[in-house]
């Protein structure tokens, strides 16, 4: 029992379970999943599908944070990627062609990758503080996206493109499979190679890692590229969902939600050891919380407050300091007695 409570994923898992329990108690249909035309529908399925963009961004953010960095530009990269993809489809003679959509998607991801290379260059080669380095793109990126779309909200009608966010692969949404693929491939790359361990080493102690011969520049650079590529894919999913490239709204504030998901998952902002499973739980907590707000009919004006209250509770429970206080409270009786004996003894 003690070991379960001590496990780093215990608290995020408990928070998620509590949210789901509260939801299903309040509205039993929350748990109901129905099958229509061989496709599953329901609140839980929606959570899995809608969480895809945040999931991708938060996974990238986890790796960046593990290197002691932060990537504020992910929302802007989403906007750029969506703008690039839609502009290509919009300008094509065959917007419904699978080939067109494929070209658009690949180009958008490539552009996102270039943006990641830029971020990584600023941080790992020029030694600029990550928060500043990525702030540049956070501010400039949306401008660039507007430039791509000529300042308009580009809309398209493209079956294959819409499929990315709303289509089904067998019984589950396609977007969910994108999430799973991203989680699996990142987990494999980080944990089946030595990349994860070296990333943690660089994040925990950059100087000791350098002295041990770790190529920290490449590791840090790679983290920003990964983060941007994932943000690029997230941007495509977002654009596909609304069938439009909205440079001002795409990925707005998602960098903050992603950071929140990482922290909820138990990865420290100070860098070092990271937990991908924790981040996955963090994303699901945030997404469930969002649907809770919708479900419970909390007026949209008050939903940020409700959101904030829940987050504060979860974060405070996870805080080491609070936990040691609680432990100290429990132990204080014993301590007082033992302190008294030592004083007598001396």
């Amino acid at each position: 029992m003690r070991n379960i409570v001590r496990h780093r994923l215990f608290w995020p898992a408990l928070a998620l379970a509590t949210l789901i329990t509260v939801n299903s108690a309040a509205r039993p249909q929350f748990l109901r999943v129905t099958m229509r035309d061989g496709e599953l529908y329901g609140a839980l399925i929606d959570i899995l599908r809608n969480s895809a963009p945040l999931m991708l961004v938060a996974l990238g953010m986890t790796i960046v944070i593990a290197t002691r960095g932060i990537d504020l530009s992910v929302g802007a990269v989403m906007a750029v990627s969506g703008a690039v993809a839609l502009t290509i489809i919009d300008g094509s003679s065959d917007p419904n062609g699978v080939g067109t959509v494929l070209i658009a998607v690949v180009t958008a991801i490539a552009v996102a990758m270039v943006l990641g290379v830029w971020n990584g260059l600023l941080v790992s080669v020029f030694g600029i503080q990550p928060i500043i380095a990525t702030l540049v793109l956070m501010l400039a990126g949306r401008g660039a996206a507007l430039l791509v779309t000529d300042g308009f909200i580009t809309t398209v009608n493209s079956e294959p493109f819409a499929f990315i966010a709303s289509g089904y692969l067998t019984v589950l949404p396609f977007a969910f499979f994108i999430s799973v693929a991203a989680i699996a491939s990142i987990a494999i790359v980080e944990r089946r190679t030595a990349l994860g361990m070296l990333t943690e080493a660089v994040g925990i102690n950059p100087e000791a890692s350098r002295l041990a011969g770790v190529r920290s520049r490449g590791i840090i650079w790679g983290a920003y590229v990964l983060s941007a590529v994932l943000a690029g894919i997230a941007g495509i999913i977002y654009a596909s969902n609304i069938k439009a490239a909205d440079a001002n709204a795409a990925g707005l504030l998602i960098e903050l939600y992603a950071i929140l998901a990482v922290v909820l998952g138990g990865t420290s902002l100070q860098g070092g050891t990271f937990s991908l499973a924790g981040t996955v739980l963090g994303v699901l907590i945030i997404q469930t919380l969002n649907s809770t707000i919708l479900f419970m009919g909390i007026p949209s004006a008050q939903s940020p407050v409700f959101f904030a209250v829940v987050v504060v509770v979860v974060v405070v429970i996870q805080s080491q300091k609070v936990r040691s206080w609680i432990r100290a409270l429990g132990a204080s009786g014993r301590n007082r007695r033992s302190a008294a004996t030592t004083e007598v003894a001396s």
Partner: peptide, 13 residues
């Protein structure tokens, strides 16, 4: 750590 760093991240021990 040092041995792994020398082998490179992708060639995990």
């Amino acid at each position: 750590l040092a041995l792994q760093a020398q082998r490179g991240a992708l060639r995990r021990l």
